[in-house]
Design a binder for these strands. Structure first.
Lengths: 235, 235
DNA sequence: CAGTATCCTCGAGGATACTG
DNA sequence: CAGTATCCTCGAGGATACTG
């Protein structure tokens, strides 16, 4: 995404314009509704949208979406022609699908609970890894959070090259795994460098399983010092 | 995208939640800014965002994005730690890239001018095609709009199967092309069935070039009757 | 430098009644 | 049935001053 425009500061920027046009409560929901449930009239649309639109707002949004070429109607002269997607609206569907998939994975039922996601905790941990201290052979910490039993995260450690976050099991030999289990609330302070490993292990806020040598060494792979500024990623 | 959730009407819906959280003036712009220009402090962020955010709003948005796991800072205890993307934010980048690409193509400099897009005009035309009247051999109408000289659209006609809209030249034999040139304002009423082909050709609102037989037959491929409700597309 | 606190404005959005 | 018209409310967002 390095190609995401040159100088967003001053230039005309299509992305910014798109947010201005579509960054509101209803526009994208209308597009989705028309895709999922097909062409519909005004009232059906109003009833189908999640959580009640007022008629005046829906009317205004539809005018705008027509103007932008996202939505059209079959016969512009008829009053009761159903609304349906026009080319710009059809072309937006892959983007909406992408947003949907992102949302399925990342939008928590309760916003405040996002920090319980194992990937987020693995992320915090990854930023405290001291690469020179990790084992020479590739090693994985598999992170399970009891508050979020459905997802796990894997932190792949390698002396050459920084730590890597994985959404799937990287599949190393069983002997190279450390299994970390904890409540999110117990792991978070450790991952953030606000509490020591030894304290957390002592009161079982964090538990480690696997080859005894690896388990014993795990705390030494991390620093409690403030994490460095991340290197900007390429992709 | 048929998999876009089952019953959006009542169920918990991640997509809807995502719009609630991110469907505003600033959230997505902040994520983009942090991606494109790397980790930054509060003031840099405020200055970098297109068109001035107030400090209070920026502060509130950052809290929310932190809560959602899109954004994080290096050391939660330090005041002046720069903001950077967290996992949920990184994962949103493909979606933003997709939106950007869509915007480059579909967001007009002037919103009202979207109707001058040849693809939009081709779309309107396509909905008036009478499949039984088109030539038995595949035929293409290439549409150029003088108001929008940078894009063209191709309408591929086939007696078997409905008309097809192309963003690229489908590459048939030269003899199967009809070249349509017009001002958007001259073509639109014809495409919408509000004006007859013969009137528009007579005053040169619309001009056709190509094999004389094809050109002569072109108007007969369309109906002026109200377009049918489109068949729902598969995705 | 990084905010928070305060106050203000405007417009998005809601509710309801009315009309072709 | 499909809106528009009207009126209202609330909150998003802006401007500015102040503080650790």
């Amino acid at each position: 995404m390095g190609s995401m425009g040159s100088s967003a500061k001053t230039d005309y920027c299509a992305f910014t314009k798109a947010i201005e046009h579509l960054g509101d409560r209803w526009s994208l929901l209308i597009v989705r509704e028309l895709h999922m449930f097909g062409p519909q009239g005004f009232n059906a649309l109003a009833a189908g949208l999640p959580g009640r639109v007022s008629r005046s707002v829906l009317s205004a949004k539809l005018r705008k979406l027509e103007e932008l070429g996202l939505v059209a109607r079959d016969d512009s002269r008829a009053r009761s022609a159903p609304y349906h997607l026009a080319p710009a609206g059809e072309q937006l569907l892959p983007t909406l699908k992408s947003l949907w998939q992102w949302a399925e994975r990342w939008v928590p039922e309760d916003a405040a609970l996002a920090q319980r996601d194992p990937t987020v905790l693995a992320f915090w941990l990854s930023r405290r890894v001291v690469t020179t201290e990790v084992p020479t052979r590739k090693t994985v910490i598999e992170i399970s959070v009891r508050d979020a039993p459905d997802t796990r995260a894997w932190l792949l450690l390698d002396r050459h090259g920084g730590p890597e976050l994985c959404d799937e099991d990287p599949g190393l030999d069983e002997s190279r795994y450390v299994y970390l289990e904890a409540e999110a609330s117990g792991l978070l302070p450790v991952a953030r460098g606000e509490r020591s490993w030894s304290d957390a292990l002592a009161d079982r806020s964090v538990e480690l399983y696997g080859e005894p040598d690896l388990v014993a060494a795990t705390p030494s792979w991390f620093t409690a010092a403030p994490a460095e500024v991340p290197v900007r990623q390429a992709g």
